[in-house]
Design a protein around this nucleic acid. Structure first.
Lengths: 156, 156
DNA sequence: ACGCACTTGTTATATCGTAACGGTCACGCT
DNA sequence: AGCGTGACCGTTACGATATAACAAGTGCGT
């Protein structure tokens, strides 16, 4: 089941993700500040990937700083802790759909129209040349979700 | 064997890729113009991924136009025909290491220091939600190649 | 109170990418 | 030959994404 494209109890997503965020931060002695928490909440509003500048606009409208580093720092904080992911193919960010697992890698299925992102467990490691030390994997499938194929791109 | 990180007959890479490019274009009734050919040659100088602006600077120095669309158009032409690939994780472009196969997808192993890119056959398709139409896959492993781990980053 | 680490904010700038428009040239057609 | 047409290349202008560097505020232990 892929949350992004199926009907589900989204309130539970949000609640679980925030709880996981609290837990991860507590465990590591780090602070889920209002800015960071709010950034995560914004991402959690849907399974749609948001650009850093989209997030920034939201934050600025709520009284936080209005310059790019404000958003990028909060997003990097979340990504490093596995609470959010960066979708390379969109240059955008999504809340993690499997929070509480600690930092982890995942595969993403991304609709290029509505920008919804389903997170799947990362597949098998790719082949790698001798002596190459893999640090990070990017596995994404881009295309059209069922709704966007039918409805010619319904709003996210 | 991965060309990018192993000693090999690079002149053959270049020769084969150019021949393949000629063939692909001829077959499709398209033109490998001097600009496009030169762009491909620049990428073919090594298995290092180049940013569009790196390519542009080279082109401009050789008398071609100096504005971004010049490079982007040539690069898109090559990418669409499978003669080059875009490496999402680097926002950069490499010549295809398996030319002549027509447009195709591939997995990439990318050294983040020297930016060398090894192209491997694309692995198994990722799992996908019901009804999702995959159009494009991005599979990349980033890390450090053997040389960059040992030599603390030898020049590309 | 003081110092320190951390967080947030700013200014400024770098990097990546595209829209829109105009000129030129080759080619086929009448 | 003259003329349309389409592909290609060049430009200007702008938009989107991202980071470096520095200043100031906050919270907390001692």
């Amino acid at each position: 089941m892929s949350l992004a494209f199926d009907r589900h109890d989204h309130a539970a997503c949000r609640r679980d993700a925030l709880a996981a965020a609290e837990a991860v931060c507590a465990e590591r002695g780090e602070r889920l500040t209002p800015l960071r928490r709010r950034t995560l909440e914004i991402l959690l509003e849907s399974h749609v990937a948001l650009g850093a500048y989209d997030v920034l606009a939201r934050l600025a409208a709520e009284g936080f700083g209005s310059q790019p580093p404000v958003a990028y720092r909060a997003l990097h904080f979340l990504v490093e802790r596995g609470l959010a992911h960066r979708v390379e193919g969109l240059q955008a960010f999504v809340a993690c759909a499997r929070p509480g697992a600690g930092p982890h890698e995942a595969a993403f299925v991304v609709c290029r129209l509505c920008r919804r992102v389903a997170e799947e467990p990362a597949g098998a490691p790719p082949p790698r040349p001798d002596g190459f030390a893999v640090e990070r994997r990017v596995v994404e499938a881009q295309g059209l979700c069922a709704a966007c194929r039918d409805g010619a791109g319904e709003a996210p």
